Simulated scan of single mutants.
Amino acid sequence: MAYSLQKLLSFEAFVSQYANNPRYELADGELIDMEPTGDRETVSGKLATQIGIAIAAAKLPWFIPRTCLIRPFADAITARRPDVIVLDETAIANEPLWQTEPVITLGRTIKLAVEVVSTNWETDYARKVEEYALFGIPEYWIVDYRGLGGVAFIGKPKQPTVTVCQLVGEDYTQRQFRLGEPIASPRFENLQLRLDDVLPRFGSQLRRSDDIL
């Protein structure tokens, strides 16, 4: 993840310039280059496909937008861009910006947010956990397919892990799933998915856990 060296952006300027550019987020007015990779896009795409199948099978009024920004706090210059996000179509009418920009400002519109971990793992495991809980997102997945997170978050030895966060009250409870284990989702009870199912088949190999301690 790289930070640009330009002056701070307003939320409105960021939306005008970068709303449809999946490479960037905004954090406290700073433009953040998320530096997407092919493997990360592979994992995100496979996750979206499997979650979309579960939505269709359950006949839920939910959908996965191609592009979407979250504005978690009206008084902060921050715009998040989850790798996968599930929205409730019945709640979209209450979103003040949606008709003109792909921006979500109400936590109740979101059913699930998914972040696929890259080198900025601290943000996914710490700051976004706090932001998404305060915003009221009921379920948040941290898909650490390379086992990059610190041992305080994924344990030792470090290994590929999916952390499913469920909002209880104002805080998230967390469950973790490793390779070979079915991912249990409170939102998608019919979902049959393992981390193994979304890993890249080709390209760079996952590093062994003893290489990333």
Score class of each variant (00 low, 15 high):
Gly38Pro: 12
Ile70Arg: 10
Asn21Gly: 06
Trp121Ala: 03
Ser10Arg: 05
Ile137Arg: 09
Thr37Leu: 14
Gln176Glu: 06
Ala113Trp: 01
Ala133Asn: 02
Thr49His: 13
Asn21Tyr: 02
Arg201Lys: 12
Ala27Val: 15
Cys165Ser: 09
Gln192Cys: 07
Phe202Glu: 09
Val151Asn: 10
Gly52Glu: 01
Leu193Phe: 01
Asp39Arg: 12
Thr49Leu: 13
Leu134Cys: 13
Thr42Leu: 08
Glu130Tyr: 12
Gln159Lys: 13
Gln166Arg: 14
Val129Ala: 13
Leu148Asp: 00
Tyr145His: 12
Tyr132Gly: 15
Tyr140Ser: 15
Arg108Val: 01
Gln99Trp: 10
Arg23Gly: 04
Trp141Asn: 06
Gly180Cys: 09
Phe63Gln: 06
Ala2His: 11
Gly203Ile: 00
Leu106Glu: 05
Ala58Lys: 06
Gly180Tyr: 02
Pro138Gln: 08
Asp88Phe: 09
Val114Pro: 14
Pro61Arg: 07
Trp98Leu: 08
Gln159Glu: 14
Tyr3Thr: 03
Ala93His: 08
Glu139Tyr: 03
Ile53Cys: 15
Ala57Ser: 12
Arg208Pro: 08
Pro61Ser: 06
Glu30Arg: 11
Ser44Ile: 01
Arg66Glu: 15
Arg108Glu: 05
Thr163Glu: 09
Pro102Glu: 05
Val15Ser: 10
Ala152Tyr: 13
Lys128Ile: 02
Gln6Arg: 14
Tyr3Glu: 09
Glu41Leu: 09
Asn190Val: 00
Thr123Phe: 14
Val103Trp: 06
Arg23Met: 07
Met1Arg: 10
Arg194Cys: 14
Thr90Met: 15
Met34Leu: 11
Gly136Ala: 04
Ile85Asn: 12
Arg23Trp: 02
Thr109Ala: 15
Leu193Trp: 00
Leu31Arg: 03
Leu134Asn: 15
Ala184Gln: 13
Thr119Glu: 06
Gln6Trp: 08
Met1Ala: 10
Val164Asn: 13
Arg187Met: 07
Leu60Ser: 09
Asp196Thr: 00
Thr123Asn: 09
Phe11Ala: 08
Pro186Ala: 09
Cys68Asn: 05
Pro61Trp: 05
Ile183Trp: 13
Thr67Lys: 08
Glu35Ile: 05
Gln174Ala: 15
Leu206Lys: 11
Asp88Ala: 11
Ala113Cys: 11
Ser118Asp: 04
Tyr3Arg: 13
Glu30Trp: 08
Gly150Tyr: 02
Glu89Leu: 13
Asp171Arg: 06
Gln176Trp: 02
Glu12Thr: 03
Cys165Phe: 04
Gly107Lys: 08
Gly45Thr: 00
Glu89Ala: 12
Gln192Ile: 04
Asp144Thr: 00
Ala48Pro: 01
Ser16Gly: 08
Gly203His: 01
Ile55Pro: 08
Lys128Ser: 13
Lys111Ile: 02
Val164Asp: 15
Val168Arg: 14
